[in-house]
Design a binder for these strands. Structure first.
Lengths: 197, 197
DNA sequence: CCTAAATCTAGCCGCCGACAGAATAGGCAG
DNA sequence: CTGCCTATTCTGTCGGCGGCTAGATTTAGG
């Protein structure tokens, strides 16, 4: 056939695709422990052993879901950065906003990405964005500031998703706080690695 | 029986205690999906149904482990703070160091604490420590700075544990980086809510 | 020593992930 | 059109799990 893989559907249509989709929604609905290969099969209207042909194991399916989620997250960040003003700091903030927005919209998937998608030179775009804010800084300072930015944003959204921060607050208030956090973060980056004032 | 609960051991000795201990080490060893009520029972040399008497469910045992872990973590933070210089900023840094040290020493337990121990007015000591650094700031600024500090420290240690930050770095280097991060954090707190310079 | 409560064991249920082998369905050679 | 080939899915099975119940065993306290 034309493509390398599964060109024409046989019994199901495209089971691999259906399983990934079912798995993703199942994960978001029932969480972690409710995620079951058999339930994915059920949602795809297929026997309990059918997934085995497409995914060697449960972890294999999770890995694929994480892989796609990771791509989607990167895309969200870049889209948000493009919407921002054409200015280094604004673009960095945009990426961070995209990061948090994706996590808030897909909390379990976000968790999964960080639990499963280990050891990947993640978020290279973030490093670029930070570097653009402090172009004159030394490489190691840029690296440290990237870590700082990432840690701040990641920690904040995680704590918020876990309900440790701003538990009883309005959505409006949380947005304001997030932006204040990002502003403080940018200022710190500028001060630490910034223009030789 | 003097105390309210399980004063003298019966068959086992103190099964409840043994299960918590076995569960904690099992969690650290096999992680999360290897954590099994039956394996805990096995490690305590007891039948598979014995735990049911002490813990209503697997979640119940996890909750207890998380509860104790949380206390231990708080103690670690306070101990580290006491070891620091008698100065607000140093004590805040000390608490953060304790936070990271505990997480690094008990990564799975640390995860568990944050996953299970939801909705608790966590880390009140951190809020106190931050407030002491910026005594003249308004309450809402203190709150924001506490969130900022917590997010920074939490994000950093999580990313480090996941291997996203400083993957190939020496332990020495990581320590230096951590301290640099904390220093930047304290400076930001001072600048944002600090002394009216 | 006897009773009642506390503690543990044995056994069952339904669910799970993984594996083995049978069955189906489309493509294709003849 | 026939018959085979291979990709895909199904049925059936195994051991392990969490949770439950029934019953045995041990201990405390009179």
């Amino acid at each position: 056939m034309a493509t390398t893989r599964k060109a024409a559907p046989y019994h199901h249509g495209d089971l691999r695709e259906a399983l990934v989709k079912a798995g993703r929604s199942l994960l978001e609905e029932k969480g972690w422990r409710g995620f079951t290969l058999r339930e994915c099969a059920r949602r795809a209207s297929v026997s309990h052993a059918a997934p085995a042909y497409h995914f060697a194991s449960l972890d294999d399916l999770l890995a694929e879901i994480a892989r796609r989620g990771s791509e989607e997250m990167t895309a969200t960040m870049e889209a948000e950065a493009r919407r921002a003003k054409d200015e280094p700091a604004a673009r960095l903030v945009g990426q961070c906003v995209g990061y948090m927005a994706f996590a808030a919209a897909n909390p379990r998937l976000f968790e999964l990405i960080f639990a499963r998608d280990a050891e990947r030179g993640q978020v290279p775009a973030l490093a670029t964005a930070v570097a653009a804010v402090i172009p004159h800084a030394k490489p190691d300072v840029k690296a440290r500031m990237t870590d700082f930015a990432w840690a701040t944003v990641h920690g904040f959204i995680v704590l918020m998703l876990e309900g440790r921060i701003g538990a009883g607050e309005s959505s409006r208030g949380l947005k304001t706080r997030s932006l204040a956090l990002l502003a403080a973060m940018v200022e710190t980056i500028l001060r630490e690695g910034g223009v030789p004032d």
